[in-house]
């Protein structure tokens, strides 16, 4: 009930993609597949998807044709671990169980490449977080984390991304902080990175300690962000300053 109300609340205040807050030049770079550097990782991901890996000697492509629409509904509930799982985690799971291959570290180039290859197949589709009630407690914890002050600067995510969205922080425009463009190419990174990497940036920005990649705290925040941005089009790989 509580998050039904939340859903209704979100519908009233249309979320605004970070893309709309960028310069025209960057928007054009993101929209043009021949200029968006994220497409270099896409190409890598496509090749990895076709490659046989692990003891099972199977390629992702042996079992999957299209994965369109999948990225739009992650993080999802994973019955195997009885916990939420994000897209990169889900890919890891197939790699471990179906391919019987060694795990790829979070934020490694091959995992980012596979994730962006899968995510891009949902480009343009609306973020549609699953209504699975088993996700509700973790999502609620994510919202609490979003509203909790942290770091030496003692700021919460909400204080920037809700109360001050549209204002400036130094030269940067504070966006609403949505998660619809990941993995994404950040000019500051000069590389493709995951949503978790972006969240770490924001945590370090307020001089808080960022948990290690893959920590439950990120999953909870990711769940809440997906809910908050429901309806926004998937834009992976987005480009950001």
């Amino acid at each position: 009930m509580r998050w039904l109300l939340l859903l209704l609340g979100m519908a009233a205040a249309q979320p605004r993609s970070g893309t709309q807050d960028m310069s025209r030049e960057l928007q054009a770079m993101q929209a043009d597949d021949s200029a968006n550097p994220g497409m270099l990782w896409m190409q890598e991901g496509e090749a990895l998807f076709q490659r046989r890996e692990g003891l099972a000697g199977k390629a992702c492509a042996d079992c999957h044709a299209s994965l369109a629409g999948v990225a739009a509904r992650y993080p999802a509930w994973d019955p195997a671990t009885a916990a939420p799982i994000d897209l990169a985690g889900r890919i890891q799971q197939c790699r471990a169980e179906r391919q019987q291959a060694a795990p790829l570290p979070r934020e490694s180039e091959p995992l980012l490449a596979l994730t962006v290859f899968v995510a891009r197949q949902s480009r343009g589709m609306a973020l549609a977080p699953p209504a699975d009630p088993r996700l509700a407690p973790a999502r609620a914890r994510g919202e609490a984390l979003f509203r909790q002050r942290r770091g030496q600067l003692n700021l919460s995510c909400a204080q920037c991304h809700e109360e001050r969205a549209g204002l400036r922080l130094g030269s940067a425009l504070i966006p609403e902080g949505h998660a619809n463009g990941y993995p994404q190419y950040r000019l500051e990174w000069q590389a493709l990175g995951s949503l978790q990497r972006r969240l770490r940036n924001c945590m370090v920005g307020v001089r808080a300690t960022a948990p290690a990649y893959g920590a439950a705290e990120y999953l909870e925040l990711e769940l809440f962000l997906a809910q908050r941005g429901a309806g926004l089009p998937v834009e992976a790989p987005a480009v950001r300053p």
Partner: peptide, 8 residues
């Protein structure tokens, strides 16, 4: 080999 995108 570095990844390359060529558009023409």
């Amino acid at each position: 080999m570095a990844r390359v995108l060529l558009n023409l």
